[in-house]
Amino acid sequence: MPKNTVSISRKKKPIRLNKLAVTIFFAIFCFLWIFPVLYLVNGSLKSSLDWATNPRSFFPDFGYTFENFKILFVGGDQNGAYDYGLDAQPITAWILNSLIASLIHTVLYLVIACLAAYAFTFLKFKGRDALFALLLVSMAIPGVMLTTPQFENVLKLGLSLNIWAIILPGLGGISGVYLIRQFFKGVPNSLVESAKIDGASNFRVFCQVVLPLAKSVLFVQGLFSFMSVWNDYAWAQIVLGYGDKKLWTLQLGLTYLVDVNKGQLGSTGVTMAASIISMLPVFIVYLFAERNIVEGVALTGVKN
């Protein structure tokens, strides 16, 4: 138990007892809660021999190994010549595709959404609020209504089996504009006005005054956008799923690995290792930006 945490209420004993009980509760709960992830980590470090001969035990009989990760990236033929469905190691391609798509989408969406949010917050023009309200209505229309025509749309634009098919369609979304606008509204109007009086153009105000203040919300929206593409499965399956494996995203590849390795001797570890790889990037980002992320998520629940 972390004793070094400073407790503010040392004097009050009942509260401290209370605190101890809650801490114990969280320790137990969080262990169970996070256990599936631990199970994945542990399983990904068990050799295929272990999985084949003793799938039941948690701990390995033959020791921990990075064999599964090696198989994923370098390829391997343990036990005969099975390659776990990893023809020519497309996992590197999957990771790259996912990364590229997620990053491009994030950057583009941030630019688009910030520009629009700026207009909806700081520019005065007739019909502004009506237009915004109209756009907001679109948020109530569920994405599923668009699935079929969006697929056709993407085909018509010549984007089939193209990474842009998963980058572009999300860019028309309004939720990010809404979130950023919420934040912009907190920026004192006087700052913007005084900059304008100094003769700065709107674009300069946008770049030099508003954006620097909005780092945290940009970060959060960026993470949301990133995750929406990185974690997407359903849409990617429709537009990329039927193409060559090398065009896939990591999530498509991962589900494929789970399916194809069902019933293959000792393949469990490889599948688990692939899952771990898909979790790593978001986990690392989280580690570095925990505070921002938590604050940002909380922001989505704040009324203007």
Partner: peptide
């Protein structure tokens, strides 16, 4: 985390 990853577990 993506559902396909945690789902594996």
């Amino acid at each position: 985390f993506a559902v396909s990853a945690t789902g594996t577990a």
